[in-house]
Design a protein around this nucleic acid. Structure first.
Lengths: 197, 197
DNA sequence: TGTACATCAGTGAACGCGCGTTCACTGATGTAC
DNA sequence: TGTACATCAGTGAACGCGCGTTCACTGATGTAC
């Protein structure tokens, strides 16, 4: 039953992808090794050929989850300006789809509270991801470097808090909080015809 | 070994207080029935004389946790204006002490992500608490009712997100995010002598 | 008010169950010659 | 290039362990008369 090196690499990729989704859907403690392996189409016994422990897997899964959402922001390098990339990232972050599908969304909103109580390696992976988001978001802000960093940090805190609250509350409260976050962070498109009173 | 009715009531209070602290420190899944009972000075076997299930306890614990932090905001009714109460609440929320002591702090930052994946009763208790915070915070804002609600929702999202991120990251990133939230939400005290350039 | 009995708060052992991890095994892959 | 052997990815059973929950029991409290 030994698989080739490429096939092992593909297995590992599937395991990490499954873990990156499941940890955002079910949390750090709610994600089991057997669940991840089954989701990847494997049995749990082979897990330790790929990772030293559940914690090591989750660290890699957090890296992967941040990489997934950062791919939206880092596209700004070539064909988009950083400001447009940041605006599109913000609009997507505050969309109802993001609230409804944590498994494809931002780890900060999905597992931020979990990581606050987790092991040091998970916090390190999480902190790295947060810093990368702040860097990319800051590049899309206006003002001095200090103002950009501040605006980016404020935006991430507001977005992650709003999405987290929206997922934990009834629909009406969720809509209220998401709407307030959108008003604060999304520049309203100008109306075609507008007469100042 | 039967206890009097008053003593049972005291036991229940201790159980709820322990649960309200532990759930904020360890999360929904990390808080065990036996842990809570031991923390309350009891053995785990007697738990079901007080609550039907772990979930029922956690619902009550969430209510209690919100009541604890709302006592800071509701004091505004008699001797404080709502605006002062909201400002003091905000300053405390964004303090380093709050980041360091989740067990005495806001459930939104501590277990918001957990509740997003929890049972309907826990979401109901959480949603009630969020709504009560928004009501009290809105009373301290300026503007039309709609503007007040918006400012309150934006403030809660930013505060909860910032504290959650600060707990999950390294000190430098934590300080950056907390500082940005303070700048956004805390009116700076005027300097004694200030000459406009 | 006193007495006899029912109730029940709390104890500590036990129950299934699911979890992270280990292990013997299989057989295809990789490698040394 | 071909062959013999070592390696090891994946399987499925098993391991401790901790969890939520149940249970028989104790003895003080509550209650009916």
């Amino acid at each position: 039953m030994r698989m080739s090196r490429e096939e092992k690499e593909r297995s590992r990729t599937r395991i990490v992808d499954s873990a990156a989704r499941l940890v955002r859907e079910r949390g750090v403690e709610g994600t089991g090794v057997a669940d991840v392996m089954a989701d990847a189409g494997l049995t749990h016994g082979g897990f330790y050929r790929h990772f030293e422990s559940k914690d090591a897997l989750l660290g890699t899964a957090i890296d992967e989850a941040f990489a997934q959402i950062l791919s939206r922001l880092d596209r700004g390098g070539d064909d988009q300006s950083p400001a447009v990339a940041a605006a599109e990232f913000t609009a997507h972050y505050l969309s109802d789809g993001h609230v409804r599908h944590p498994g494809k969304g931002c780890p900060v909103a999905a597992i931020g509270a979990d990581v606050g109580r987790a092991s040091a390696p998970l916090k390190d992976a999480f902190g790295d991801g947060v810093r990368r988001i702040l860097d990319a978001l800051a590049a899309g802000q206006a003002g001095t470097p200090r103002q950009r960093r501040g605006a980016a940090a404020r935006a991430l805190a507001t977005m992650a808090g709003a999405v987290m609250i929206a997922r934990a509350c009834d629909k009406a409260t969720a809509a209220e909080v998401m709407g307030a976050a959108r008003e604060a962070l999304i520049a309203r498109p100008r109306r075609k015809q507008h007469t100042t009173s």
